[in-house]
Design a protein around this nucleic acid. Structure first.
Length: 566
RNA sequence: GCGCCUGUAGCUCAGGGGAUAGAGCAGCUGACUUCUAAUCAGCUGGCCGCAGGUUCGAUUCCUGCCAGGCGCGCCA
């Protein structure tokens, strides 16, 4: 189910007619040497500056090269040959160095208002993905401590991206990879066990490699409270194993709860251990060996990833016989493909960028299409507090947790903040500033627009005014600039979704929301709704109702609540 | 040394071949007997890091340099 993308339809229309205009001009002896033109290649864009029309084409500048005439002259010829007025196009003018600007009949705006109201929550949905099975794996934090701020950014970005893919017609699945097979969970168990022994009065130091956070002691205390008797009866080996499992389970629950509070829910929590237990890492070894991509050197087994563009070969089995993280990661990605995902997106930290080439190499060596594997490198977050950088170190136990962040700035503000920057841009997050400015945070600005509309609709309803179906309204009465701006923004939602997905740019949605809210607030100050003549009031009610739908849909994509009152 | 990311307003950042480069915050001036002033209108503020190249056109693409961040393990 997807609403018609009205803007796309108009663009298509312009391309068609421009194509015809070129043919017509050629037939009359103009524009020699153009040749045939594929309408799909005719550039038609939404100009940044509204004064340049609703749509614009740079086709004249592009053709200038072939035709060897001044772009401006070409534009004039095309504008003259362009057939209009048409069902969508009202005006055609040549401007600047050779732009052809199109003014669009307001009926396209009306269609969007009607569609937004009638389609409601599904307005803006497009069928770009055609149900393609996409998996997005994100956060995948080590299960050795609470979620930190970097995890929170990944959570926000991944979740919004997944929402966007869903909106664009993909069959999307959210996945969290649990790194529970490495030695870090052993260290976790050890840390916890030693804290427990200290609690029992034993005088032993905590080794340097251990995790030092307060939460470790808390876990030890809890274990003693809940399982004290059993623990006392265990021999040292069993006890360490117990603490490992206990801590792992508790931390996973904790992480899950934090993410839940943040509004992020995963379809699958995938355990590395399960993968290893099923010997899927060894299967990968077999596959690679059969493909002739393995060799031995210095007592280790190497994968010749350089065959696939990596800059050096990689060890998959260490000389002590254990497997490397890479091998298990390849097994994991093979598993993803075997589960039927047609496109895989991993969100990684920038410190993992070196793994992209070798992982893709492995995927290719195993016979899967390398282009179906995509990595989004999400840049880090630097926390500031009062202008001073907050250094974070898990081992030292110093960090701001995701929970603290949510307590501090709130889920909505935090999510917005994380998603408002592009993924490849570092994020400076000043806690004090975020707290201080929480009254004027952009997220409130957007939510306030939504609440204001709700208030208007509430008021209308309490006055006994019933909203007329949009298609029965005199939408042509919406002739003020702000009203048309607002309607135009409503039109552009499907476009915006498409662009955000194409560019993997959740931040586009944040910007769109801000722009839309801004235009609405502007409208609110210029135009009244209730109290105008019946016809105008009904038309504005429709406009405002449609705006509310769009704001709500965008906020939902961003995972931000849509308050009815503030 | 090699790889990835970044450099745009005082601050935090958008824009990524096109027209006069934008927003928020900060600063200044105005607007509430009105459907929510968490709002609006206006002003101030820019060698788009530097130097070349590609072309009708470069803040955007390419190369080099400078500056910052992150990596470059038989760790995960």
């Amino acid at each position: 189910m997807s609403a018609p993308n009205i803007a796309e339809r108009v663009r298509e229309h312009i391309r068609q007619r421009l194509g015809q205009a070129v043919e017509r001009a050629t037939a009359q002896g103009w524009l020699m040497g153009v040749g045939r033109l594929d309408p799909r290649e005719i550039p038609v864009e939404v100009p940044r500056d509204r004064a340049h029309g609703d749509f614009a084409s740079t086709i004249a500048m592009v053709l200038a090269r072939k035709v060897k005439e001044a772009p401006r002259a070409i534009a004039e010829v095309l504008a003259r040959s362009f057939e209009y007025p048409s069902e969508y196009i009202n005006t055609v003018e040549v401007a600047g160095p050779g732009f052809i600007n199109f003014g669009v009949n307001t009926c396209w705006l009306h269609e969007a208002i009607i569609a937004a109201i009638e389609d409601g929550e599904s307005y803006g949905r497009i069928d770009q993905g055609g149900g393609l099975k996409v998996q997005i794996e994100f956060v995948s934090a080590n299960p050795t401590g609470p979620m930190n701020v970097v995890n929170a950014r990944a959570a926000a970005v991944g979740d919004v991206l997944a929402n966007l893919f869903d909106f664009a017609g993909y069959d999307v699945s959210r996945e969290y990879y649990i790194n529970d097979a490495g030695n870090q969970v052993d260290v976790l168990g050890e840390s916890c066990e030693i804290r427990m022994r200290q609690l029992m009065g034993e005088d032993i130091p905590l080794p340097e490699r251990c995790y030092k956070g307060e939460y470790i002691s808390d876990l030890a205390r809890r274990a003693l409270e809940e399982h004290g008797e059993e623990i006392r009866r265990m021999d040292p080996g069993a006890r360490r194993e117990f603490f490992k499992e206990f801590a792992l389970k508790a931390i996973l629950e904790w992480q899950k709860a934090s993410l839940e509070r943040f509004g992020v829910r995963f379809d699958t929590w995938f355990s590395e251990r399960v993968l290893v237990k099923a010997h899927e890492d060894e299967e990968v070894l077999d596959i690679l060996r059969k493909g002739g991509f393995l060799y031995e050197k210095d007592g280790a087994v190497w994968f010749r990833s350089t065959d696939f563009g990596d800059d050096k070969d990689r060890v998959v089995v260490k000389s002590d016989g254990t497997t490397t993280y890479l091998l298990r990661d390849l097994a994991y990605h093979r598993n993803k493909f075997r589960r039927g995902f047609e496109h895989i997106i991993d969100i990684w930290g920038p410190d993992h960028h070196g793994y992209v080439a070798r992982t893709r190499a492995g995927i290719q060596a195993m016979g899967y299409p390398p282009e179906a594997f995509e990595v989004l490198l999400l840049q880090l977050v630097t926390l500031y507090s009062g202008g001073e950088q907050v250094r974070m170190s898990k081992r030292a136990g110093e960090f701001i947790t995701m929970d603290e962040l949510i307590d501090d700035v709130g889920k909505d503000a935090a999510r917005y903040f994380f998603v408002t920057r592009s993924t490849d841009s570092h994020l400076d997050f000043d806690l004090e500033l975020a707290r201080k400015e929480s009254q004027e945070n952009p997220v409130y600005y957007i939510q306030y627009a939504h609440a204001r509309i709700a208030s208007i609709l509430r008021q209308a309803s309490s006055m006994g005014i019933s909203e007329r179906p949009a298609r029965l309204c005199r939408l042509d009465l919406l002739d003020q600039d702000v009203e048309k701006e607002l309607a135009r923004m409503i039109c552009l939602l499907p476009d915006e979704v498409a662009a955000a997905v194409r560019e993997r740019a959740p931040n586009r949605m944040a910007r769109y929301a801000l722009d839309l809210a801004g235009i609405f607030h502007n409208f609110y100050n210029k135009c009244r709704v209730i109290g105008e003549d019946e016809e105008l009031m009904q038309a504005r009610l429709a406009l405002v109702r449609a705006t509310k739908v769009v704001l709500a849909n965008v906020l939902r994509i961003l995972g931000i609540s849509q308050p009815e009152r503030m």
